[in-house]
Design a protein around this nucleic acid. Structure first.
Lengths: 135, 135
DNA sequence: TCCTTATGTAACCGACTTCATTACTTATTA
DNA sequence: TAATAAGTAATGAAGTCGGTTACATAAGGA
């Protein structure tokens, strides 16, 4: 399957909140901007709130508010907050005991994948919500 | 969803072929080593054959044979051969025309994702089948 | 207090992927 | 010609993804 777009939506949400500068916004309003359903927004906001990135208030004068400086939140932070999956996967079929190399192979593969993932994360860490807004 | 494991299986297949040094191996034998179904192996071999990495012969004395030096095939080569998906995805909801920033946002996000992906690819390019075997 | 607004969730849906498996055709060769 | 093996279509179970409805709960304002 193609990768999910939750990280992108999360970034979009924070950018919208940031561009409204402290003002609380309802999930409905954000949803309009992202062009999706309010529940989709709330689900992601819930994850971000758990990490203290946003505060969500109920009732009138409720809505979501950004708690961090937009130039201090990176795509990597968001990825972590969302518990994103690994980018690569080693097949989890049990190593064939009759194939002595296969066990070590899978370990080596796992390490290589971990390195690739780290390299990607490093790039994500260089991009802040603020920078996304500047375009 | 968790990422697919085809790249890992492809690497495993090539490692098995390489470790049998030019000898042709049936999909059934490879499948035993990888602990999966022969058809799964054949599907991946088909993609690799299309790129000239392996040759697959039918009938008796058929089977798959490695056509490249194992130290000249990288994980990135395999990823390309398998037409692997993008690691990150921007939400494809149409940008809301009433939200002037959202269009540029998505473009900036796409560029950031492309950079992260490239960084990961660069790491994959550093790992050859040969190296996986050495463990 | 009551009504409006807004979040927090659970539940469900349709579309899709992933991997495994069966079944069958085609090609090769001993 | 019989055995072997690839190529490939079709199917199925399990899981993900984004969207949607529905409803309980909380917070203000009139």
């Amino acid at each position: 399957m193609s990768a999910n777009s939750r990280l992108a939506v999360a970034a979009h949400i924070l950018a919208v909140l940031a561009s409204h500068d402290g003002e609380a916004m309802s999930s409905a309003r954000v949803a309009q901007s992202v062009n999706t359903n309010p529940v989709v927004i709330r689900r992601i906001l819930a994850a971000l709130a758990k990490k203290g990135m946003v505060a969500c208030g109920k009732g009138k004068a409720g809505g979501a508010r950004l708690l961090r400086c937009p130039d201090q939140v990176t795509l990597w932070d968001l990825s972590m907050a969302l518990d994103e999956e690994h980018l690569f996967a080693v097949h989890r079929n049990p190593a064939n005991p009759r194939c002595p190399g296969s066990c070590g192979m899978k370990e080596a593969l796992g390490k290589a994948f971990a390195r690739a993932e780290k390299a990607a994360q490093k790039e994500l860490r260089r991009v802040t919500v603020q920078e996304l807004l500047r375009r």
